[in-house]
Design a protein around this nucleic acid. Sequence first.
DNA 1: CCACGCTGGTTGCAACATGCTACCAAATGC
DNA 2: GCATTTGGTAGCATGTTGCAACCAGCGTGG
Lengths: 147, 147
Amino acid sequence: MVTRTRFDDSECPVARSVDAIGDWWSLLIVRDAFDGSRRFGEFQRSLGVAKNILTARLRSLVAGGVLESVPASDGSAYREYVLTPKGKALFPVIVALRQWGERNFFAPGEPHSQLVDRRQGERLRALEVLAADGRRLDPDDTTVRKV
Amino acid sequence: MVTRTRFDDSECPVARSVDAIGDWWSLLIVRDAFDGSRRFGEFQRSLGVAKNILTARLRSLVAGGVLESVPASDGSAYREYVLTPKGKALFPVIVALRQWGERNFFAPGEPHSQLVDRRQGERLRALEVLAADGRRLDPDDTTVRKV
DNA sequence: CCACGCTGGTTGCAACATGCTACCAAATGC
DNA sequence: GCATTTGGTAGCATGTTGCAACCAGCGTGG
């Protein structure tokens, strides 16, 4: 068979993460969920994705424990998709992607959406990779080990 | 036409990032590059990816400025693929994915590869999203603004 | 209470992407 | 100089994506 390769049994955590959310739409759905989208139609309008694709993605995110389908908060008979704790734990991933995108794909002054601290309205601090003792680490300061 | 949707003109930085590295293989290639892989054959053996796919992905990563093709460091006539500064800036993204994967896809005690501080050999500190003044921020503490 | 629009899908089809295998040329190793 | 390794390309079968059409429940104005 010629099925897309899966990584869900890899010993590398990055691979398993990619297996769960590493397609074109899932990360953007999660981004929209962080941004407050809950309903099927909200995601569909915001992303411009075909409805069959959105259906499939929402299902796989629910199956993967990233989203959860709950009764609509407005009392209607429809359902809503909200982030589980596991889904909320993706926050640093989204923030890292956002900061990388801001710095590498936008000309200075080019308009773009920006994540800000709700209380102060200010930009966030750049994410830093830190050692156990608090030293900033560059890629070269780290190495991969099996455990 | 039915081409895969592109996000390279979106005003959202997350979307542009996904456009550049958001397919099944690119992030794993970047992970391997952080881990020291440089040669075509190294990536191929490590990932088990078909060679035509690897060729295409390496080319698109080079075109996107994430990797760079340089003469081999061992003096041979072959070429190597190394991370550009833009590629190295993906470090927090990879670390975030790794930490999320470690916590959500592995049973306690299940073996997995781990990123450690080269100097102390210890695990890294968990990534934190911080406000400008250093407060830890949860998803609910932030909001998206246009600029 | 009923007709009409909205919401949240499903189905079918055509085009594109992926995976596999075979093949191949240049560089290396012996 | 000959075999092997390296770094690819080409062709085919299958899977996945995108689009448009369709459809069943819900909700709401009258």
